[in-house]
């Protein structure tokens, strides 16, 4: 019996342990010049992201994680912890200082930090979508809901008006936007409805990775609840690899199964979400959880 017990390999096919689709390795983003000493002068233990040596800000450093299809990974932390920096680097909005982010596309691995800007943007069209906290960042306010969804579709080569309409209405129905509002300007929509349109747009080309940046922050509680439910059901329906950035543990708890805790640009703890909530190890995580439970 000892023999079988020491065997740590198990039948992956039967349990279908998902393999990563997005793999981030040693991502770093520093504002200002830096070297080892400057990096070492910042972080959770130093209780600052700003170097006392030269004032450089180490917004994120040595951030590594993997996300599998069908899985949502949370990144939690206070504002300024670096969580949004990480997401923006993955989105292509910020250029990271160092590190790699590999996406598995079929049999190819593509480091999205390494590709030409044009290919980067194409990846944003059909492979990596972002849902921003502020819908005006992800949507054109003076364009209709349908037109906003038409943008990624036409960027991906859709040229048939009726098919674009059909796809847009399908996505809006799925995100519970009344179809009779499809041809209204997004500007005329409420905050929660804008966020639904943004999610519909993000799903337009069935991306394999979706990045959510505080997707419900700033919405009224009841509206936020509806948007959260929507994201939850979409994540369960689709085999998306999702990254959810939030300062709100209730969002993280509801949407994610695994979670990173960031503090002053560093990952201080990484665990299953229920572990973080019930058995947090790092002093910072304990403080965060205690505050959330209060």
């Amino acid at each position: 019996m000892n023999d079988t017990f020491t065997e740590r390999r198990y039948d992956i096919a039967r349990l279908a342990i998902p393999e990563w689709l997005l793999k981030v390795e040693r991502l770093g983003k520093v504002y200002g010049p830096y070297d080892d000493e400057i990096i070492a002068s910042t972080g959770s233990e130093r209780d600052t992201a700003k170097s006392s040596i030269n004032g450089s800000v180490v917004a994120a450093w040595d951030v590594s994680f993997e996300v599998a299809p069908g899985e949502a990974l949370g990144i939690v932390g206070e504002s300024g912890s670096g969580k949004t920096t990480v997401l923006r680097c993955l989105a292509g909005d910020f250029t990271p200082s160092t590190g790699s982010a590999t996406i598995r596309l079929g049999s190819d691995d593509v480091n999205i930090f390494d590709v030409e800007p044009a290919q980067r943007r194409r990846l944003r069209v059909d492979t990596v979508s972002v849902v921003y906290q502020d819908p005006s960042e992800g949507l054109k306010m003076n364009v209709t809901a349908g037109g906003n969804i038409a943008e990624p579709l036409t960027a991906a080569g859709w040229r048939n008006f009726s098919k674009i309409r059909a796809r847009a209405s399908d996505l809006l129905a799925r995100t519970e936007v009344p179809l009779n509002r499809m041809d209204d300007l997004v500007r005329a929509f409420s905050g929660g409805m804008r966020q639904r349109v943004q999610i519909a747009k993000a799903l337009a080309n069935s991306p394999s990775v979706v990045l959510f940046d505080e997707p419900t922050t700033g919405l009224d509680a009841s509206v936020a609840a509806g948007v959260l439910d929507l994201i939850r059901s979409l994540l369960e329906e689709h085999r998306i690899a999702a990254v959810v950035v939030s300062h709100d543990f209730s969002v993280i708890e509801m949407l994610t199964s695994r979670c990173l805790v960031m503090h002053h640009g560093r990952i201080v703890e990484s665990a299953l979400t229920d572990q973080l909530l019930e058995d947090p190890h790092h002093p910072y995580t304990q403080r965060l959880v205690a505050a959330a439970r209060a």
Binding site: V125, G147, T154, A155
Partner: peptide, 11 residues
Amino acid sequence: DYSRMWVSLYE
């Protein structure tokens, strides 16, 4: 990248 031109035609 002419998607926004297409969007304006769509609109």
